[in-house]
Structures are given as C-alpha cells and as structure tokens.
Design a protein around this nucleic acid. Structure first.
Lengths: 359, 359
DNA sequence: ACGCACTCCGTAAACGTTTACGATCCTATG
DNA sequence: CATAGGATCGTAAACGTTTACGGAGTGCGT
C-alpha cells in the first residue's frame, strides 16, 4: 500500500513542498524538536512514511558533524579468516541491542589483509565515516590506540595493550583462565604442564603465560621454559605443538592450549603417535566454540557469552561519548571479562583414575 | 615524522590557506583532475600527507551523490550466530581485492536479529550510505530484490530467488553438488540414499532437493519421499535427522547433508545407537570448513574458494554499475559457482569393501 | 489599548566538498 | 603587433540537512 506514486522522493524539500510546509519545520518535526505543533508533526510523519522519505545521511552528517554510526573494526588476517567469524557476529547482537536504543547503527569494517591496520583505521577516522570505534586484536604496543586518543575519536578496545592504561578497554580473563586450567590439572595430580601460546607480541599470549606462571608458583611447581611451546594459534600450530611435546625428554602429562582450533591439529598428531588425548595426555583448550564440539574426545574448555560481552563493549563505549555518557554515569571501563569452565573428556576427569595424587 | 604541529586539520580550506592556493585547485590536485600544474599537484599532495588531510566523506558524498562504499549485508540470524562460520570473512578478501582497485571500500552491515531484513535494507538504502549492495541468504521470494531494483541501487545477490531472473545473482552449484554426491554413492552401490535439507522456503534447499531427485532419476532409482528428512541446518538438525533415519523401516545406507554442521549431531546420534559413520552409514556433507576437519571419521564434503567467489561477486556487481561497467565489458552475471569434492572417510570409500554392487 | 509571553513556523546560513565557468597569463603563429 | 589558444587557477554554486534567529499570530493580564 505504501509509496509508489511520486518519483522516489528526492529530499526533504520535496516532502516540504508536498505538504506545503517549510523545509525547516519538516526537519524539526521529523527530529522530534519541540517547536512544532503536534498536529503538523503527525502530518509530516505520515507523509514521510507514505512517500518513503528517509533523511540523506551525508547531508545530515555534514551539518551535524556526526554520523550516528559506530564502527567495529575487524582485521581479516589470514588467521582470523580461517578461524571463523562467529566471534564478531556473536558480538553484534549485544552491541546492537544497546546501540539501537540510541538510534546508532553498527557497521563492520574489515581491514584488507594487504593494508596496514593502522593506515586503514587512519583513513576511516579521517574520513569521518564513524562516530566511534571498537577495535580488537590489540597488540602489546598498538599504534591505533595512540591514533584514536590523539584524534579524540571515542573508542574502546577488546584486549588491553601494554602501554598506558588510560583508555577504555575490555579484556578476556586470560589470567583467570590460565589459573583455573592449572588448578584443575594440578588437582588431578599433574605436575608437568605444558602450554602452547603465540608470541608475546600479542598481549593475549603474554597475559596468558603470566597467569600460567603465577598459577604454577602458587602450587610450588617450578617454571620450566621448555614446556612453553611457541606456535601459531591455528590448526597447524596445534599439530606443531604436539610434535614438539612428543619430542621432549621428560614428557609433560598435560597441555593447555590458548585456542581451541589448535586442538584439532594436536589431536591429529597425537593420534598418529598412538597417544590418546584425555588418557595419555590431558588437554584443556581455551574457548568454547561450535567447532570444539566436533572433537572426540570432547574438549574441556572455557565458555563466555558473546552477546553479553557485546553489551558491555557498547556500554563502555557510550560512556566515553559526551553525547551519551549521561546514560551511563558509571563510565564503566577496563573490565575483565570472566569465563566459565566447560568440562569435557579431554582432561581425563571422566576416566576412573581421578587419582588424588595430591602429595 | 609526519604531522603533529597544526591543529589536526579541519578541512580542505585550511589546507588551501596553508598552501596559499585556492580551495578549488587543491581539490582538483588531490583528485587527479587534469587542469592543474604538476608542480602544484606535488606540493598539494605533500602538504596533505604532512598535515594528515583526508577528505571528509560526508561533504564529498553530498556533492557527488556517491559514497564510494559498497555494503555487504549479513543477517545475523540466530542460526548464523550460533553456528559460527567463516563464510563472510572468507569472502571479504576477494571482494576487497577487486574493490580497492577502484578506490571503493567495503563495509559489512549486520542486520539486527530483531529487525526485518527488508526494513533494515530499506533504511540503509534510503540513507544513501552505500553505493551498491551485496545481499545473501536469498529467500525463494525475497522482497529485498524488488526493493533494490525499484530504487535502482546496483546490487548482486548470493543465491538466486525463484522470482524473475532479470537481476544479477551468483549461486552455489547445489544442483551439481547433489548430483555429484548421488553419483558417488550410487557408484559405491548405494540405492537407498536419504537427504537432509531445510524447508523449501530457502531456495537453497529447493534446488538441492531438485538436483537430488534428478540424479536419482538418472540412475533409475525411484524417489522415495520418506527419505527426505526435513530438519534445520544445525547441529540439532543433524541429531534429529539421524534419529529419524534410525526409525525408518527400510533404513537407507547413505545420507547427504546440506550443511556440514549437521554432521556433528548426526555422528553423535549414530554413535549413541552403535552405528558407525562411514561403515554402517555413508555420509556426505556439503561444505568444507575448518571445523569439518574436527570430525572422526573425516567428512567427505565439497570445497569452494571463498576468495575467488568474492572476486566473482565484486566483478559482477561492478559490471552493473554505470561508473565501472566499462572495466567489465562482459557484464558477467548469473554465474553458478562450482564446488569440488573433497574425499573423506565418512562415505566408506576408504574401506576395503568398495563393493561394486553395481547390479 | 497596550505589552508581554508563548506557540508555531519560515528564512537563511552553515557544514566540506566538487565542478562548471570564466579569468588570467603565456606562447606561438599570423 | 595582434590574436588565438592552451595551460593553470580562482570564484561561486550546488549537494541535503540542521538550526539559530526572528516574525507572525494568539491569548492574557494590566
């Protein structure tokens, strides 16, 4: 029933002429400004709906200096691409539930793999295509944070950098995960626990390793550098990790993986060597994902709610934006996001020998 | 070394004043227009780089009526979010490799799960935030196609609808996949082949089933409606499918899944019943994905190159855009994207009994 | 009758670009 | 020398909005 007669609507001017009202009043009516008769407002809204008029974003942005768009930057590195994108999609639901309340739209900005993320971000920011930014995969030292602070673009990062802490970030509780994993394994009698993590450049890996060391310390277990396997967070990395573990003289009885995707490669290499995960080597992975459910034996790993994390990110971001901060007086920032352990079979707890070798 | 002295650059006017050149000339210099001295152009470019000037997108869009942004709409349905997939991110690389050649940027537009995709698209289109659209998950009858055609926004769909065929689309070769799967199973002696597919509303399922029927026909096998299992394309759907298959009186010896994620649920239910995939029931899945590699026995499925598909999509889209069509004179449209079979163990071919029961 | 306050609306400027048009200068050609 | 024409640049209009400002009308109290 709607629309279909006049040319598809050029702009607010046509709408004003059609109503025989001034263009300024139409704008005020549409934007809920006070100085307009309720009856006229109704007429305007009806006509707008009828003719399918929606304000041109460029004109509006140009005038207001604001775009009403929040950008979620995702760098489609080769790894990310392989890993899958349900992480970001999982986030969007929660993000949008908060943003839409303020009539803000979310767009995802995939950084081309052949472009420097810093340059890409710079371009996007300079072009003023978004009002604020959410960035992830934070490096230990990340130029993007300086850029955003310097240009005064509101932002929040998923993952903290090592640099100054005076910016809003949210990070996963890698420390807690490492501690919890070690605790669980030690309680099961394990003393030689390996860890597979990427280079320390990724802050994630750094914190993870740190938590691991502290947990060992807490249990009076000496830290053995040879048990730190440096591999990529991928299937191949997992294969490589298993390979190196098998070569160790005093072979560990357990291994903690920083990423569940590594488990598939690890399983494969172990199986080749006749070593059965869960029985001969306890395995704990990091994140629960649909994929992890494919594994046999099922992987013990950690779960988090992506939608809830999205909500937290959005609220933290809005709290830093002058136009919206009064909605979020707490200004909650620098949150460490908890994860919950999901028991599986890969740590061997389901087997009879839940030996309380706790000396 | 770059930037850092003057206030972060307001606009082209400041740049012009700084150079003591008229604003028009600066614009022409930056945009590579001919009427400008090469020496001045150099000066302008240098100064722009130095001061970190990048044209404001809103101003530019408003004047030119073009945004230089291509939108990839992704609807984050509950299934997509939960399932986890690398599909869209896998596409972006190929898309961008083509788009960046024309200085076009790609943004991903995630439709909120609580908003009608059609309304969402309408909003985005009306606001003129993108020059063209790529939409996916096409329904058999999809209002979005009418909307885009009516408003004359260039677009390409991934997946064809049942309606008029006079628009650019690219679709996966479900027909070929179904045929190839049936051929393979029949060559192995199977006669009772089940298929698990979603409702016919999804055009994908419709075409898949159609290919399946034709393939059976070709081999002189009667179509048995009871072998068509209608379930959701998810893990639960797979479980459900296995359950229903096990209940059938004249149990099929093989099953074709429309989505590899179903395999995990299917495997689980089969294992519960003591039926071993690959030995007692041949299984062929649809799409190769990192997570399919988690399965034991490995899944026979079909592979495609997502980056290449992205390239094809981008080129098809550009071919329909007046400003770029001359780069793609073929105007290639309506392409059916081929897939390649990846042999695994789940179809039992690796076992000795590659029985040539071919009557 | 006058002024004041209030409601409602129209006018026009401004946002940052791009670009059509015309002006200026220079060179070559007659 | 006059002039045509090319090279280079400046001027100003236009894109579609929003919004500060002021004007017209109305009602009310004095």
């Amino acid at each position: 029933m709607t629309g279909g007669k006049s040319p598809p609507m050029k702009g607010i001017r046509q709408l004003a002429e059609h109503l025989d009202i001034s263009i300024g009043t139409v704008s005020r009516a549409l934007n809920g400004k006070p100085d307009v008769n309720e009856e006229t407002r109704r007429r305007v809204l009806v006509a707008a709906e009828e003719l399918g008029y929606v304000a041109n974003q460029s004109g509006r942005s140009l005038r207001q200096g604001t775009t009403n768009v929040i950008g979620l930057m995702i760098e489609s590195s080769k790894e990310t691409t392989e890993n899958g994108d349900n992480f970001f999609l999982g986030l969007t639901g929660g993000l949008q539930s908060v943003l839409s309340r303020h009539k803000l739209d979310l767009i995802m900005l995939p950084c081309p793999s052949d472009e420097d993320p810093h340059e890409y971000l710079k371009r996007m920011v300079a072009r003023r295509v978004v009002d604020a930014m959410i960035i992830s995969a934070t490096q230990r030292i990340d130029k993007r944070i300086d850029l955003l602070s310097r240009t005064k673009i509101p932002f929040v990062t998923l993952g903290r950098s090592a640099s100054g802490s005076n910016y809003p970030w949210i990070d996963l509780d890698f420390d807690g995960v490492a501690n919890s994993a070690v605790d669980r394994l030690v309680a099961h009698g394990h003393r030689r626990i390996a860890i597979a993590a990427p280079s320390n450049d990724i802050n994630l890996g750094f914190i993870f390793l740190d938590g691991y060391r502290h947990a060992l310390e807490r249990h009076g277990i000496a830290f053995d550098p040879s048990l730190v396997i440096r591999v990529k967070s991928s299937e191949q990395g997992g294969y490589q990790a298993a390979h190196e573990i098998l070569l160790l003289e005093d072979r560990p009885t357990a291994v903690i993986l920083i990423y569940e995707l590594m488990a598939i490669g690890l399983y494969r290499r172990l199986t080749e060597a006749g070593v059965i995960p869960g029985r001969d080597l306890a395995v704990i992975g990091f994140r629960e994902e649909p994929r992890a459910k494919f594994l046999q034996p099922t992987l013990t790993c950690f779960r988090m709610s992506l939608p809830d994390l999205g909500v937290e990110l959005a609220e933290t971001l809005l709290a830093t934006m002058p136009a919206y901060s009064h909605f979020y007086p707490e200004g909650a920032r620098n949150c460490i996001w908890p994860l919950e352990l999901v028991p599986g079979e890969s740590d061997g707890f389901h087997l009879g020998n839940n030996g309380q070798r706790r000396q």
